[in-house]
Amino acid sequence: MQSAAVDLPDASDEPLTEAVVDLVLRGMWRGRPESEHRPLVDAGLALVKGPVVLPTERAKATAAQILRVPAGSEQEQRITAVYEAFLPVNRKIRDVCTAWQCRPDGTANDHSDDAYDAEVRESLEDVHEAIQPVLRRLDRVLPGSGRYLTALEGALDRFDDGAPEWLASPLCDSYHTVWMRLHQELLLVLGISRAEDEAREEELVTGSRG
């Protein structure tokens, strides 16, 4: 996943390293002032496409290198244990978002059926209950990861306040958007590829834990 030799931005340049990690985990910035993305663009870490700012390949490699915990370390082991508890729930949240968007017969969910939507909301609650202990534990072994639970709760509140886009829309910090960022951070922290991730999830889910 990582390329071996990437010139990290100067370690003393903390705002720049923080910014590049943020951009890579988010996948894009939209509506940020130029003062924020200009230093990244100048360092070859970002490119501007119309209204969005995207990370370059170099930025992705840099973020991967910054986030990666030492291979074989105790911290890696502890985060891996949390990651394995995360994976079965990761399957469930995608199923919940899918159920919110599409009915089981494959047609679009037009949200005209309150009972169906209420059922999906209940499965979202199951997911939210299941992820909380996982994130509380992650917070103990990965500094800063507590922000994910805060953001997930914020998205859930907005969803319950009647703004359904806060479940799965990619255009806001919706529940799914925040989740995807968390997932991406775990992969980079542990140096796990998407393919390995998928295989591991399948193994855990078919073994039907959680």
Partner: peptide
């Protein structure tokens, strides 16, 4: 069908 990619792609408007 239930990948992050599919969820994102269905996200902006109707799926």
């Amino acid at each position: 069908i239930a990948s992050h990619a599919a969820v994102v792609a269905r996200g902006p408007a109707s799926p």
